[in-house]
Simulated scan of single mutants.
Amino acid sequence: MRKGIQMVLIIMMVLLAAACSNNGESGSDEASQSSSDAAGDSAATEEAGGEAAGSSSADNTGSGGEQEGAATDTKTSDRMVIYNGTLSLEVENYDESRSAIETQVENMGGYIVESSVESGEGNERTGSLSVRIPQEQFSSFMTAAEEAGTTVLNRSTKGEDVTEQYVDLESRLRSKETQEERLTAFMEEAGNTDALLQISEDLSAVQEEIEQLKGEMNYLENHANYATVDITLHERGAASLQSGGDLNTWEKSQQLFTKTLNGIVSAASGIAVFLIGLSSVLVPLLLLAAGIAFYYRKRRKHEE
Results as ranks from 00 to 15, higher is better:
residue 71 A to H: 10
residue 154 N to L: 15
residue 29 D to Y: 15
residue 192 N to G: 11
residue 45 T to R: 02
residue 9 L to H: 11
residue 98 R to H: 07
residue 71 A to D: 10
residue 151 T to A: 12
residue 120 G to E: 09
residue 297 R to I: 05
residue 297 R to F: 11
residue 234 H to Q: 14
residue 203 L to D: 00
residue 65 G to M: 11
residue 119 S to M: 02
residue 101 I to N: 00
residue 114 E to F: 12
residue 232 T to G: 06
residue 253 S to M: 15
residue 155 R to T: 14
residue 115 S to L: 08
residue 53 A to K: 09
residue 147 E to N: 05
residue 218 N to F: 13
residue 107 N to A: 11
residue 159 G to N: 06
residue 243 S to P: 01
residue 48 A to S: 08
residue 188 E to Y: 14
residue 19 A to Q: 05
residue 115 S to P: 02
residue 13 M to H: 00
residue 11 I to R: 15
residue 202 D to F: 10
residue 257 F to I: 11
residue 214 K to F: 03
residue 158 K to H: 15
residue 295 Y to Q: 04
residue 142 M to I: 08
residue 168 D to V: 07
residue 180 E to G: 09
residue 246 D to Y: 05
residue 133 I to H: 01
residue 152 V to W: 07
residue 83 Y to P: 03
residue 278 L to S: 13
residue 107 N to I: 07
residue 103 T to Y: 10
residue 63 S to I: 11
residue 15 L to I: 09
residue 242 Q to I: 07
residue 295 Y to A: 10
residue 244 G to A: 15
residue 55 S to W: 15
residue 21 S to Y: 12
residue 277 G to S: 13
residue 151 T to L: 08
residue 63 S to Q: 07
residue 277 G to T: 06
residue 246 D to C: 04
residue 221 E to F: 02
residue 87 L to R: 00
residue 128 S to L: 04
residue 225 N to P: 02
residue 215 G to R: 02
residue 95 D to Y: 09
residue 63 S to T: 07
residue 40 G to R: 10
residue 213 L to W: 02
residue 241 L to D: 14
residue 235 E to I: 02
residue 219 Y to C: 05
residue 203 L to E: 02
residue 91 V to I: 05
residue 293 A to V: 07
residue 196 L to Y: 14
residue 292 I to P: 01
residue 278 L to F: 15
residue 142 M to Y: 03
residue 237 G to C: 09
residue 43 A to F: 06
residue 67 Q to C: 06
residue 257 F to R: 06
residue 100 A to I: 01
residue 177 E to I: 10
residue 73 D to G: 13
residue 38 A to T: 14
residue 172 R to N: 09
residue 258 T to R: 08
residue 13 M to V: 00
residue 199 I to C: 03
residue 109 G to Q: 03
residue 139 S to Q: 10
residue 303 E to T: 00
residue 200 S to A: 12
residue 234 H to P: 12
residue 148 A to L: 02
residue 160 E to H: 13
residue 47 E to N: 08
residue 38 A to R: 10
residue 277 G to D: 09
residue 292 I to Y: 09
residue 199 I to A: 04
residue 260 T to P: 04
residue 118 E to G: 02
residue 53 A to L: 09
residue 75 K to M: 13
residue 236 R to C: 05
residue 133 I to K: 00
residue 137 Q to L: 03
residue 5 I to R: 12
residue 206 V to G: 02
residue 246 D to S: 09
residue 14 V to L: 07
residue 61 T to W: 11
residue 215 G to A: 06
residue 66 E to I: 07
residue 281 V to G: 11
residue 220 L to R: 04
residue 167 V to P: 00
residue 163 T to K: 02
residue 65 G to I: 05
residue 11 I to H: 13
residue 29 D to Q: 15
residue 229 V to Q: 02
residue 148 A to Q: 01
residue 244 G to T: 12
residue 165 Q to G: 03
residue 135 Q to C: 06
residue 116 S to P: 00
residue 146 E to D: 03
residue 120 G to T: 05
residue 244 G to W: 14
residue 97 S to R: 07
residue 160 E to S: 10
residue 225 N to I: 15
